Amino acid sequence: MSLLLDIKQRNALLSDMAQLLDKERTAILAANKIDMDGYTGDDIAMRDRLKVDQSKIDGMILSLQQLAAQEDPLGVERFSFEHENGMQVSNKTAPFGTILIIYESRPDVTIEAAGIAFKSGNKILLKGGKESLNSNLLLVDLWHKALEANEADADWVTYLQFNRTETQAFLEKPTQKVDLIVPRGGERLIAFVKQHATCPVIVSGRGNNFVFVDKEADLEMAIDIIINAKTTKISACNALDKVLISSNLVRKQQLLSHLIQELKKSNVEILVNEPFSGMEGTTTIEDEQVWYEEFLDYKIVIAQSSDIEEAIKTINTYGGGHSASIITANNETAEYFMNNVDTAAVYHNASTRFTDGGQFGLGGELAISTDKLHQRGPIGLQHLVTNKWYVKGTGQIRG
């Protein structure tokens, strides 16, 4: 068992790893080119997530630098109490132990997830997809160099080069202690992990996010937010899938025609419900299943809602529990919406694309949880901890 490293050692290692990434840019890009050339699938979201460029390396480096600068999340006192017999009782944050993250396509997760786990005193087992193998193996090799340079055990960061059968066997009967599993990817991956895992699982990755345009919305703002949330990064779980428009919006047709025009500039496929049926450039929804889908593609639903109550009901019925936004000039309406929509992040007059650990001031994220236990939304450094009770006595016994 690797003993917990003190905060100076953990921060020094993260800083060293950031320098290694900067030094080995050429090698990282070369390894990623092999992965990109070898990817023959037609999933544009997966291809986008797979690609590593200079900007993505900059993001990896920044994530490690921000982690190194943050306060130690361990040993933080959450509760203290002096017993009537004189014992001092306190509750403090503590590491989980070993975390397994199973993810698809994204080499930057190999840096960000491992960095967050390491800083919070947890070992991490990384199980990446075969499509990003060369990128991941190189990045894990850099982790091991940084660990060795700081006289830390290599098993703080372990890469599991398993196929699907081997992964299933490990989930059902782990060959080492695993305290928490985070599947980060599509719905099939999440279902696979939940079916076979024998320890706690935090579900991450599914979006299906909504924007509701209230009757008191600013039309220009609504269009800007919808276009940003839909088109800037279609592979992100915080991208927009569904737009609900109040039937009482005065300039509804003006909004629709302008919105459709802007979406078509990015070649977005537009599906509409019956009240908007027949509008040029759109297709009417024929299968209710569409409402449950996270598209991860240039595809969107635009539908009419009779009022805010129907909008809330629609989001809570079909949404992925990730993010929802309301566009309105009425603060009371916004508050009502935000209090009643059942998602990890709720927005008023802002794009859902901000649901991200870095954007929320967490300095990165392990994943974005749509579960309610033990953390909801972006899981940052501060959340990758459990707790432990410390009881200090002077010989007390219980009668």
Score class of each variant (00 low, 15 high):
286 E>D: 15
185 G>W: 06
9 Q>L: 15
75 G>L: 05
132 S>G: 05
197 A>T: 03
273 N>F: 12
183 P>T: 14
60 M>V: 03
318 Y>T: 00
75 G>R: 03
110 T>K: 05
184 R>K: 09
34 I>T: 15
350 A>H: 11
259 L>R: 11
70 Q>A: 09
361 G>F: 05
180 L>V: 11
107 P>V: 14
287 D>N: 15
333 T>N: 07
280 E>T: 15
74 L>C: 02
277 S>G: 13
375 Q>W: 00
148 E>D: 14
212 F>R: 05
114 A>W: 11
183 P>E: 13
245 I>V: 15
274 E>R: 12
372 K>S: 07
36 M>E: 14
298 Y>D: 05
47 R>P: 02
267 N>R: 10
385 V>H: 01
232 T>M: 15
50 L>V: 02
179 D>R: 03
227 I>W: 15
141 D>Q: 13
105 S>Q: 01
152 A>H: 04
11 N>K: 13
294 E>T: 10
268 V>H: 07
64 L>R: 07
234 I>D: 02
309 E>K: 09
36 M>Q: 14
273 N>I: 13
281 G>F: 01
77 E>T: 11
2 S>K: 13
337 F>C: 00
10 R>F: 10
132 S>Q: 10
2 S>I: 05
4 L>C: 04
16 D>G: 03
296 L>M: 11
39 Y>N: 07
340 N>P: 04
173 K>W: 11
221 M>W: 10
162 F>V: 14
31 A>P: 01
26 T>G: 04
374 H>C: 13
385 V>E: 00
35 D>V: 11
43 D>T: 08
86 G>I: 05
55 S>A: 15
118 F>S: 10
234 I>Q: 06
341 V>K: 09
323 S>V: 00
317 T>N: 11
33 K>T: 02
32 N>Y: 07
64 L>C: 06
329 A>N: 15
134 N>Y: 06
327 I>C: 06
306 S>K: 15
343 T>N: 06
29 L>M: 07
184 R>P: 01
120 S>I: 02
36 M>G: 01
26 T>F: 05
171 L>Y: 01
149 A>L: 09
239 A>D: 03
322 H>M: 06
339 N>M: 10
199 C>W: 13
212 F>P: 02
339 N>L: 10
323 S>N: 04
113 A>N: 03
87 M>P: 01
246 S>Y: 06
60 M>C: 03
99 I>G: 14
27 A>T: 00
320 G>S: 03
115 G>E: 00
47 R>N: 06
209 N>R: 00
200 P>R: 08
300 I>R: 03
277 S>L: 12
313 K>N: 02
253 Q>A: 14
88 Q>S: 05
259 L>K: 09
93 T>A: 01
374 H>I: 13
27 A>E: 07
189 L>R: 04
345 A>D: 13
123 K>P: 04
27 A>R: 05
235 S>D: 11
359 Q>K: 06
157 V>K: 09
328 T>C: 09
172 E>W: 00
225 I>W: 07
